[in-house]
Nucleic acid binder design. Structure first.
Length: 586
RNA sequence: GUCCCGAUAGCUCAGCUGGAUAGAGCGGCCCCCUCCUAAGGGGCAGGCCGGGGGUUCGACUCCCUCUCGGGACGCCA
């Protein structure tokens, strides 16, 4: 409908050009908006106000001329000038009704489009270190990332969802060592657990199962384990030095093969847990990309070689630096440490090189907001690799701050004191969790009150939307119980009986769905879709309370049924896209 | 100190790439089930859109500045 009005206005502008009223080279962007107030018609444009200056006349006069050279069209019943120079369009009711038939014909495909034209987009998200279960902070990234990806898919992009697994590096060594120490405890050794180790209960569980399976195979006396190890922080030492020494000790005592066993056991259990957790949350990935493979297959070396070849690497103080400051970063960054190990950032450069090589037209990274300082250096790396860094789009997600009532819940992965995504799901359910997470703008701080979210009294907006869907289903069941049958054709032929204010409002809202979906997708703002669905549900509930659908008059009844079934379809399309269930009864 | 994000009703937040009288939910008060699930609906009260400048026909929206919150600034990942 919008497109149609744009075309009509374009024709009018062309006509005015040839009359010499408007300048030839003018090609204004034509803006059509839904009106907020029905007294202003259905659509409006600010075209006259935009062009008034260059046409050297006032907006209302110009609007007059635009209207008079507007071609006749059967869908437009009235055109008015209002306010400072808005041109308001009133659409024929018959044309408005068409949306119901369109929704019925397209079904669950209604709203989908090919705006993306099949362009390849990669969305990388969650990518939490596999050192423990996902917590509620990761949950937000998961919900947001999958929503963004699914929305882009819906408007015709070819989307690939990916999880980058940080299965290399010091954190993983700390994990392996933590497991080993718990294992030693399991064997009966007396161990003072490092303050910097992973303290979660899941570590003990992994240790327990290793002990159960392998007995004392990995056991060493605690005296040997702690011999000459520098003090931990509580004893006045440095916790980092302490844990690094323990890692070295683990590697020495166990040897690389046995150490790798422990490492691998930890990784596979935790990663398996994460995968299952996400799957139950309705989040799936095409690719789980391992950081370690980048190191093992030489990609990291290759990436550094390319940077070196372009003259972006130099040596200083025993380390290798990338001169990212030449490319917009605030300072240069180390890529190979003085101990010969490459940094996390080096892996990241290789990873993005890999993404580029895979030929994505657009790369979207979803990161926690605390990583925003990384954006310039990654973009710098992409430029250094000869790529267009505008291909990379980093979306930031603020952490959710948890509250229990008025009390802030402290969270730290190390201390093991955190609320997991799994706990959240079991308490509030998948639907509520996803809905809540995506309800807010991603870069907005979010207060997540567990008490409120876990309370059985439902102030939860997800039910409001789901209930609208269930209510339509209920009406259809009632129809059946009354021994009536739905007559689709009869309803379609009598849509013109839908003249109540509530009905036109609902129809208008339905017609906004494709636009809402498109905007939500292109702006990476799934919350816009949520807001749309709430508006739609509200329109429906109001209508439901004001009018009886199952009237004795079969023509009116079937017309109304067609309308509410269209509403049901859109509710289902939107909720399904967000991976939220559409219950038939509640 | 530099950078990022935020500041809108008592609370939590929207405000659709600058538009007409700033909205919703919750909380408060008042109404609506002989009627398709009241997990619903209707109404009332509640706002210097953080302050101040600027651009514009027009600003919650864009620019500058200040104030106040949150976060980031490692040879950690």
């Amino acid at each position: 409908m919008k497109q149609k009005l744009v075309t009509l206005l374009q024709q009018s502008v062309e006509a005015l050009k040839s009359e010499g009223i408007l300048e030839q080279e003018l090609s204004p962007k034509i803006n059509i908006d839904h009106t907020k107030d029905t007294r202003h018609g259905d659509f409006s444009t600010n075209l006259a106000m935009i062009l008034a200056k260059s046409a050297k006349t006032n907006p209302r006069q110009l609007a007059e001329k635009i209207i008079s050279s507007l071609p006749e069209d059967s869908t437009v019943s009235k055109v008015e000038i209002a306010g400072p120079g808005f041109i308001n369009f009133f659409i024929n009711a018959d044309a408005q009704f068409q949306i119901i038939g369109q929704i019925h014909n397209a079904g669950n495909k209604f709203g989908l489009s090919d705006i993306g034209a099949g362009k390849k987009v990669q969305v990388e998200f969650v990518s939490a270190n596999p050192t423990g279960p996902l917590h509620v902070g990761h949950g937000r990234g998961a919900a947001y990332g999958s929503a963004v990806a699914d929305l882009l898919q819906a408007i015709g992009y070819n989307v690939s969802k990916e999880y980058y697994v940080n299965d290399a590096g010091r954190q993983m060594d700390i994990l392996a060592t933590s497991i080993w120490l718990r294992y030693l405890e399991e064997c009966g050794e007396l161990i003072t657990f490092p303050s910097n180790g992973y303290r979660g209960e899941y570590i003990r569980e992994i240790a327990f199962s290793i002990h159960k399976k392998a007995g004392n195979e990995y056991r060493h006396p605690s005296e040997l384990v702690i011999e000459h190890i520098p003090d931990d922080e509580p004893q006045g030492g440095d916790k980092e030095i302490h844990i690094d020494a323990l890692i070295d000790r683990a590697k020495t005592l166990l040897g690389s093969s046995l150490y790798h066993d422990i490492f691998q056991a930890g990784l596979s259990v935790i990663l398996g847990d994460i995968k299952q957790d996400l799957e139950e949350f309705g989040v799936t990935f095409q690719e789980w990309f391992s950081e370690r493979t980048l190191m093992e297959d030489g990609s990291v070396k290759e990436a550094l070689k390319r940077l070196d070849k372009e003259g972006y690497l130099y040596q200083k103080e025993g380390a290798t630096w990338f001169s990212s400051s030449k490319l917009g970063d605030e300072k240069d960054r180390v890529v190979v440490r003085d101990n010969g190990q490459s940094t996390y950032f080096a892996s990241d450069i290789a990873y993005h090189m890999n993404k580029l090589d895979r030929g994505f037209d657009q790369i979207i990274n979803i990161w926690g907001a605390d990583h925003h300082g990384y954006i310039p250096r990654v973009k710098a790396a992409m430029q250094a690799l000869g790529a267009d860094d505008s291909k990379l789009n980093v979306l930031l997600v603020q952490f959710a701050v948890l509250y229990r009532g008025k009390e802030k819940v402290p969270m730290s992965t190390r201390s093991g004191e955190f609320v997991t995504l799994r706990q959240l799901r079991s308490e509030v359910g998948k639907d509520a969790a996803r809905f809540f997470y995506v309800m807010r703008k991603s870069e907005q701080h979010m207060d997540f009150d567990l008490k409120l979210a876990t309370s059985k009294t439902n102030e939860n907006p997800v039910f409001y939307v789901q209930y609208a869907h269930a209510r339509v289903c209920s009406v259809l069941r009632q129809l059946d119980e009354k021994g009536w049958k739905r007559d689709l054709l009869l309803g379609m032929e009598n849509l013109n009986l839908l003249t109540e204010d509530h009905e036109t409002a609902l129809i208008t809202t339905l017609s906004k769905y494709p636009g809402a979906l498109e905007r939500a997708a292109l702006q990476y703002e799934p919350h816009q879709l949520i807001h749309y669905l709430r508006e739609l549900a509200n329109n429906f509930h109001t209508y439901y309370n004001a009018h009886q659908f199952l009237t004795d008059d079969a023509t009116l009844r079937n017309a109304r049924l067609n309308l509410i079934c269209a509403a049901k379809q859109i509710l289902a399309n939107g909720l399904t896209l967000l991976n939220i269930n559409t219950p038939e009864s509640m």
